[in-house]
Design a protein around this nucleic acid. Sequence first.
DNA 1: CTCAAAACATGACAAATATCATATTATAAA
DNA 2: TTTATAATATGATATTTGTCATGTTTTGAG
Lengths: 225, 225
Amino acid sequence: MSKCEQCIIRQFNSLKSLTKDELVRISGCKTSRLIKKGEIIFEEGDTLNGVFCVKDGVCKLSKLSSNGKDQIVKLVVKGDLLGQRSLIGEESANLSAIALNDMEVCFIPKHEIMHDLQKNPKFTLDMLQQMAHDLKDSDNVIVDMAQKSVKNRVADVLIYVNEHFGVDEKGFLSINLSREDYANIVGTATESAIRILSQFKKEGLITTKGKQIKIENLQKLKHIE
Amino acid sequence: MSKCEQCIIRQFNSLKSLTKDELVRISGCKTSRLIKKGEIIFEEGDTLNGVFCVKDGVCKLSKLSSNGKDQIVKLVVKGDLLGQRSLIGEESANLSAIALNDMEVCFIPKHEIMHDLQKNPKFTLDMLQQMAHDLKDSDNVIVDMAQKSVKNRVADVLIYVNEHFGVDEKGFLSINLSREDYANIVGTATESAIRILSQFKKEGLITTKGKQIKIENLQKLKHIE
DNA sequence: CTCAAAACATGACAAATATCATATTATAAA
DNA sequence: TTTATAATATGATATTTGTCATGTTTTGAG
C-alpha cells in the first residue's frame, strides 16, 4: 500500500502541515478504498469515525430537504478532505456523500486525526484556515441562492464545473452531472434546469451530446442578465 | 476598563479556552468601544486588523449582491466573535457588519489573536469547532434558501428571532428588524416580505404595532406548509 | 443486440414572486 | 408640535418558476 509520506495528494489539503512522524503514523493505520460511481460513501445521520482523503474522483455532498428534494451543497474533488466537519464538531454527518464517478479514497481513523489536532497547532491552524475559506464560499452561495435567478445560477454552475473540472479531449465538461444533479445544485425543479439548458443551447451558449455538455460561449454565459 | 479575565462574555466563545496569562495579555491591549444603532462596524473589502468580541447588542452581517440588493447572511449576538474568519483567512472582509441596536464591543488586535492561535492548540481547536458548527449552519441555510418558499422562510426568521433574542415585557420580539431587513434575510423583495407579514397578521399568527411584531401562534408558524 | 427503465425534453397551465404605482402611517429632525 | 422623510401597506400586473402530462431519447442489464 502506498505511503502518506510519499503521497502527493496531501499537498492540496491540511495534511501537508503534519510532520514526517505524524504522517508515518497515519500511514500505518489508514486504509485505501475504491468507490464506484453512484456509491454512497456516507449518509446524513451516519456517525463518521474518520475522515476521507480523496485521491481521485469527485463526489457530491447533499442534504435532503423537508420538501423531499435533495440539495447538493458542495462538490468534493481530488485533494479534498471529506468528513472533517462532522468529526471536529463531534456530530453525526449533516450531509450525504455520493460518488459522481469512480473514486479512490484513503480513510484515516478519527482518533489519529483528533490526536494530531490536539498536538500539532500548525495542522489545526491550517484546518482552521481551510474552514474559514469554506465559510466564505458558503456565504457567497447563500447570497447567490437568495438573489440570483435560476437561469443565472445554472450559468454559474456551468462556469464553475468548467473552471474546476475542465473539459475532455473533445471539449465536453469532464464531469457528467445529470440534469437532476444540476437542478439539485441550483435548487430548482429538474424540468426547469432542463428548460434553461435547452434555452442556452438555442442561444448557442452550449451544445450537448446526450448528457454531455460543451460550453461554446463562456463570455456570454458569464454575462447572463 | 474592565478586564478580560473577569469578563463573563468570553464563556460564550472561543476565548474561554485561553489561559489566564493569555487573557491578561489580551486584556492589556484590547480596546472597548460603543457602537450606535445603524453604525457600520466594517464593510466588505475592509482590511480588519483584529476581532471584535460582542459584549452587548446585535449586528447584521450582509453582502451586496450583483443585483444591488443586500443579503443578510448572519445575525451576530452578545457573546459572539466578529471578524475571525477574515483574520484567519488572511483576507479582507467578505461581509459588512452593521449594528442593529446600540452595541458594546471589545476590539482585540490581530497579532494577539494570531499569536494565541499559533501557541495554544486548545484555543485553535475550540475556534475550529465553532467554525465547523457555523459551516453546518451555513449548509442548512443554503438548503432552506434553495428549497423552501419565501413564506416558509419568513416564518422561519420569525421563529429564529423569537428563539434567539426573545421578547420584551409586552411580548414583542425584542429585536426590531425593518421589513427591509426581513426581506434581506429571506432573500426576497421588501414588498413580498411585507405582504407575507400582512397575511400572517390576517391569519392571526402574528400581531404588529408599528414595526414591532408579536408572535401569537408559534405552533402554526412552525407548520406553514 | 434487444428492450425496459431511466433520463431527457417540451407543452400547457398553475402558483409563486417581482415590479411598479400609489397610498398611508410612523419617525425623527427642526 | 410640526413637517419632511422614511417605512409600511396594498393593488395591479408582469415575470419567473413549479407542476403535471406526455412523448422522445439514451443507457445499461441480460
